[in-house]
Write a protein that binds this DNA or RNA. Structure first.
Lengths: 262, 262
DNA sequence: GAGTGGTCTAGACCACCTT
DNA sequence: AGGTGGTCTAGACCACTCA
């Protein structure tokens, strides 16, 4: 249960002593304000030029400190609006098959989904491989934006084989897609394959999330299979890196010493 | 099998068209060089001042482009030495209980482990909670540095209860700790609990990894339990963000619609 | 010792958000 | 319209790596 939640639960907590570069001193001041609750989640920091006056440092130095805090997930920026204290991350457990709307709500937060685009597009070679269809076969292609407590946290693109869920795009897609697939098409998920990789949010993704290109993110790629091994849903989720935390609890399949040849 | 490996396998691949800011143009040039193989993994980029001459941009702009590429995991820096093209990431599968030394070798890479410190330290309150001992109870505390093909990729700190593995610190710890626990103490892992979170590498961790404070990373916290539910090993791993990729393949425990109350 | 990245300054103009 | 962050310049000195 008790997942470590505060910085000081971690063994490598940054030591607050060393003087070091000037931008780290400012970073420490702000980080401390957040840790002590003086700066609450969602609160806006003073403007960069205001911080210049407070600290006497050049603006570049101020921005270095803020970028550092952003990399740590303590603050985030709203383009040309300002810097804000990050809200806590939600925990994502791929072994518990509740969808986004459920598990976010369970954690006492307010989830929302917005469909940005839905269309039918021919399968690229790699998608064809995943769905075991011929390249060029039409696939449903849904782009959605999801938010927590009003803050956008991820952009996802979902591919579904129309052969399994004909007419899917006619349904309201702003809720749980998994639920629609289960209730309307009797498609239930038996197995999930998930890949996760830290990444940078760039290009169209960064635009849709409203973040500066290059902001660190987390890419979660999910393939859902039914009992027959068919791909029910293929999903790429680009998360803001400070919004997600992954938790997995599982029985071990192999022991050390077992020869791993397969 | 076929995990997407190239940028263009992803649906949100950054579009190479838009002109946009000048640092993105440079970023695109370098990213393209890497994608086309002209810049191979491990190769060193021209120095920042050299890039200034090539592009006519100010050094700050050059560094902006390089920082962007670093955030994307395409390049990394060696302190005061230069910028280098990142090697491919290794895949980590928490459901397959091979240790670091095994799964890295399986992927055709050369793993290495170095013990930085080993000592006995009293349990902090949160550690005492995890191990179900009283605060202050001595625990083994091992700090290690692990590398792949000669490049440091993670710093980890492992806690073990001496009651389960007396004299552990006397063993050579530069190999597989899990193997020692299994072979010497008959401690086998039945269950793993894993938490993952994008983070920034700061302070002592950044120093030990030889990265600039604030470099993005991935924190993997692993609790291993034996069949009796005892904590065999508690491990915090701080990874370079461009060195790891997580893959999970699992059967689903709950279905949509199941009431989630527990 | 020459060259590298790390840090910092003090300006500037712009696109955009906010009110 | 005023303020914000986003981008960019042209310098500077330093700590460190590397040959």
């Amino acid at each position: 249960m008790a997942t470590a939640s505060k910085t000081d639960d971690f063994l490598f907590a940054p030591s607050e002593e060393a003087p070091g570069p000037q931008y780290l001193a400012l970073r420490n001041r702000i980080a401390e304000g957040i840790a002590r609750g003086r700066l609450a989640p969602g609160v806006r920091l003073p403007s960069e030029r205001q911080l210049q006056l407070n600290t006497g440092a050049a603006r570049g130095t101020i921005r270095e400190a803020l970028a550092q805090l952003e990399a740590e997930g303590l603050v985030y920026r709203r383009d040309r609006s300002g810097w804000y204290v990050s809200p806590p991350a939600v925990t994502y457990d791929p072994t518990r098959w509740a969808g986004f709307m459920s598990y976010v709500a369970e954690q006492g937060r307010a989830p929302a989904t917005e469909t940005l685009a839905k269309e039918t597009a021919p399968a690229t070679p790699s998608l064809a491989d995943i769905f075991r269809v011929s390249p060029g076969t039409p696939l449903y292609d849904i782009t959605r934006r999801r938010s927590i407590d009003g803050r956008t946290v991820l952009i996802e693109r979902i591919m579904v084989d129309p052969a399994l869920a004909p007419g899917l795009l006619a349904h309201p897609l702003d809720g749980s897609l998994t639920r629609i697939l289960a209730e309307q098409y009797d498609l239930t998920v038996a197995r999930n394959r998930i890949d996760m990789k830290p990444c940078a949010l760039t290009g169209a993704t960064a635009d849709a999330l409203g973040v500066k290109p290059g902001t660190p993110g987390l890419l979660v790629v999910r393939s859902s299979f039914d009992a027959a091994g068919r791909v029910v849903e293929y999903d790429q989720e680009y998360w803001r890196h400070d919004a997600i935390r992954v938790h997995v609890d599982l029985a071990v399949r192999e022991r050390v010493g077992a020869s791993v040849v397969e």
